[in-house]
Design a protein around this nucleic acid. Sequence first.
DNA 1: TATGAATGAGATTTCATTCAT
DNA 2: CATGAATGAAATCTCATTCAT
Lengths: 204, 204, 204, 204
Amino acid sequence: MTQDKETRELLLESAKAEFMEKGYNKASLRSICSNAGVTTGALYFFFKDKADLYRAIVGKPVDELFEIMQAHFDEDDEIIASADPDADFDDHSEIAQVLIHHIYSNYDAAILLLTKSQGSEYEDIVDRIVDMTESKSVEAMEKLAARNGKKKKVNRYMLHLVIHLVVDSFVHLITHEPDEKKALANIKKVFKMTMRNWKDTVLD
Amino acid sequence: MTQDKETRELLLESAKAEFMEKGYNKASLRSICSNAGVTTGALYFFFKDKADLYRAIVGKPVDELFEIMQAHFDEDDEIIASADPDADFDDHSEIAQVLIHHIYSNYDAAILLLTKSQGSEYEDIVDRIVDMTESKSVEAMEKLAARNGKKKKVNRYMLHLVIHLVVDSFVHLITHEPDEKKALANIKKVFKMTMRNWKDTVLD
Amino acid sequence: MTQDKETRELLLESAKAEFMEKGYNKASLRSICSNAGVTTGALYFFFKDKADLYRAIVGKPVDELFEIMQAHFDEDDEIIASADPDADFDDHSEIAQVLIHHIYSNYDAAILLLTKSQGSEYEDIVDRIVDMTESKSVEAMEKLAARNGKKKKVNRYMLHLVIHLVVDSFVHLITHEPDEKKALANIKKVFKMTMRNWKDTVLD
Amino acid sequence: MTQDKETRELLLESAKAEFMEKGYNKASLRSICSNAGVTTGALYFFFKDKADLYRAIVGKPVDELFEIMQAHFDEDDEIIASADPDADFDDHSEIAQVLIHHIYSNYDAAILLLTKSQGSEYEDIVDRIVDMTESKSVEAMEKLAARNGKKKKVNRYMLHLVIHLVVDSFVHLITHEPDEKKALANIKKVFKMTMRNWKDTVLD
DNA sequence: TATGAATGAGATTTCATTCAT
DNA sequence: CATGAATGAAATCTCATTCAT
């Protein structure tokens, strides 16, 4: 006993592997424990329940992701509030880079969240990201319209779809390209594509 | 009771409802049977196991979908094989209409497949559609290149992504728009968008 | 398999013994099943859960008990409504006999209820009996007072206590005297005692 | 923290609350410890096991109770041994007062013992009190008979029952009347009632 | 004194599946 | 065709207790 200080870590490793292999629902706490070389009781010393164990793996990265997004939208708000009417919203290269870097720094958690979270409290993570992005975009567009007086007609359905697709692109990229640099290179194309789609189909 | 020969049908109805409510994994055969007013034995008379029951609901629509797609690609092949070098590949309105009609004619099955199939043999249905579309597209492009001598450089990653996104668009549309006509109207925009993305990012 | 038709019965027997030995809370469904020679799954074919199993043993006797009591109180009501102002409420020998007979006809269930029900939905059975008796008694006394014009002052605390004690006497008798005839003989004394206590302490 | 030497006290407080809320059986040592702000190890430093912890709360009051009762019976013995053949055994007001005072001075423990002790070594406390009272009463009656020559026939069953009921009355009173003075007032009525029952039914 | 970690046995419940009738 | 019964394995979770430090 008292192996250095690792049991919790062993459990997290084992849980990661099990969730990855079987998904949240079918993952067995028994397997997780026996693979970690401990009894089920030990697991319950460190984690409240299955949900808590999963949260211990993906919770922090998720929270940070939303913080990063929030910070980005706050910045945009400031730009909108500032004098310059021609500020550039088209250059998403910075936020893309930050997001990609954060995600690839937590790659295991990202894969778990995007492909193995059904049944957990995170099963709607992608929808939550889409929803946040959409509502923040709408807000920003309304502020811009209020300030500029120009009012572009917006196709709300296409707005939703385009945002959905750019998020899906991220998801697809992350789940298929394990190399951060390559992912970043591709995501820039995705953004370019998205901006055109935006202008062509969201703004009538 | 006048049940004539309907037990199988009752079971299928009940199963649809249960799968819809809980998803493939969490659906309980017990619940399905008791809601259908029969015992588990009856279920096992008509269906080999849980997978077979699910297949009985979604199998035929899926097979037909792939047949429709196959027929479409075969037509394209013929056009490529024909003399006309300027044949139009850009007009997908026909295939779109046929696909949408097929899907909305089997709407329950479609929703089941797209949102409730995790754990079943159909959990990868979207990927299979993407894969088929992608490989057929590559084939077609190679045949065209061979015939025309012109060889456009193709960005395989973006090809894959663009196809993925158009399929995702379908999925998103189907799961969010229950009205066939409205869905069809929107899907045309999606195709237009996709064609531009194709030319801009797949062909360098 | 198919032993005559008895598995459910075996389970009930085994459950009775286990509940009797360990009480509701500490009774183990595992033990019950293995002592009955079946697997736990079998139990869950016949009973919804632990509570349902317990209910299958004691539920009917309890319901019948309350029906018997209700019928008794209804009879009293009729007597009160009738002309005779001097009807005799003091002779409880009939109800005593009926109650005792019912209880001793379901002796196992009675012992279970009175001594082993903690943790189950029946843990308050004695209180429920006291409450019903008390409220019916109060009703009856009020009706009598309204009819007769005479209004005896009632010490509510002693009323409650005396009723509690007569019920306790029943309980004590039942749990200590397994012979129905002897129990009946003693319960008559208890009633006599109770009637005097009633007059002396409930009615000031 | 200034915990000086209070951990044990914290644990006892927390245990009292837990036992009160859930009863002996369902009380969780984990909860007790965490509510006390210590770990399980600490508990096991002060107490041998769950039983020992419970004993630490209720043991002393129980022992004292039996001592008080013993002293009372010893006094009675002396009176019997004394010359006066007409000594008064009917006035229990003194012992009633002493008992009630002791019990209300340890009210938490009393409630715990009377309503939450199932599963513990004290689950039979009421029976033990009844048994002691009964055997001491029989002893006393025999001594009296031996001395006086008169031999009243005693109905042993009713003796047991009457004692049981007076004890039950105490229990009921204690658990329903938190005010010591009111309890004392009522208990006197109970004794009066008991004395009459005694003469009427115990002594044929 | 007290902690933090871990045990191991136990609890109830659910499930897909089987099979004699 | 269908029933009713039963299996057996697995699931998550809780518990009192122990012990090295």
